[in-house]
Amino acid sequence: MKDFITKFKKYNPFALYSAKAELKSEVSNSYLTWIWWILDPLLFMLVYVFMVDIIFKSNEEKLPVFVMSGLLLWNFFNKNVMLSVKIIIGNKSIISQKYIPKYMLVIQKIYVNFIKFLISIGILIILAIFYKVQLSFNIIYSIPLLILLLIISFGISNVFAHFGVFIEDLANIVQVLLRLIFYLSGIFYSISDKLPSNLYNIFIKVNPMAYIIEDFRNIFMYQKTLDIKLYFYWLFIAIIISVLSIKLINKHENSYAKVM
């Protein structure tokens, strides 16, 4: 743990600068990129709203806000995990020449995705005002929730970053897995309404995204507070995964360069 903090301090300037440069080059490569950062979640939201409203006849009020809040949390998690699978091979040129703790590459990507995530939070707030969602000071509770999201994304991404080096077709498997979790996370439906309560209780304890999305909506749309018990349950798991994944990477990282 101490080792992690010293390494983090040493290499964080690199991750920050690299994230900044990456965002900048994305914007300058085509004029429309940053518009896509806004359009992409908006259009997907519309697709799900259309599907849920017309086909499944949802009785959810303020459906666009409902879907959007789930979708942006999911997108952040999804992108981090998906990108982590190839992250070490993708940075081959740097890894074969200089030493860097490999989880810093994961952190760098999290920075990039987090900026995009903040933009979509902005869209969500505009949507919420448009649909007259009552915003309250309870929104402060979303901060610990976002911290949990960051830690769990970091831990899980690390694990896939490690195995992605050795298993060439891991990306395909992860894609299917993520799709499954997507449908089980209640992005366009409410798991607490649609699922029988015993199933719901299991879901919320095995799928972190189901919990985070559920609690985020409670805070953001319905002026509730955190589910403290579940929060600490997940925080504990997230920290355990992160610590173990850092150990895993520390143990093997110098053999990554030999595989490639």
Binding site: S18, A21, E22, S25, N91, S93, I94, S96, Q97, K98
Partner: peptide
């Protein structure tokens, strides 16, 4: 370490 080529992020300046 100074060796031939590589060591850069190709998409950045």
């Amino acid at each position: 370490l100074l060796s031939i080529g590589l060591g850069f992020k190709p998409e950045l300046s």
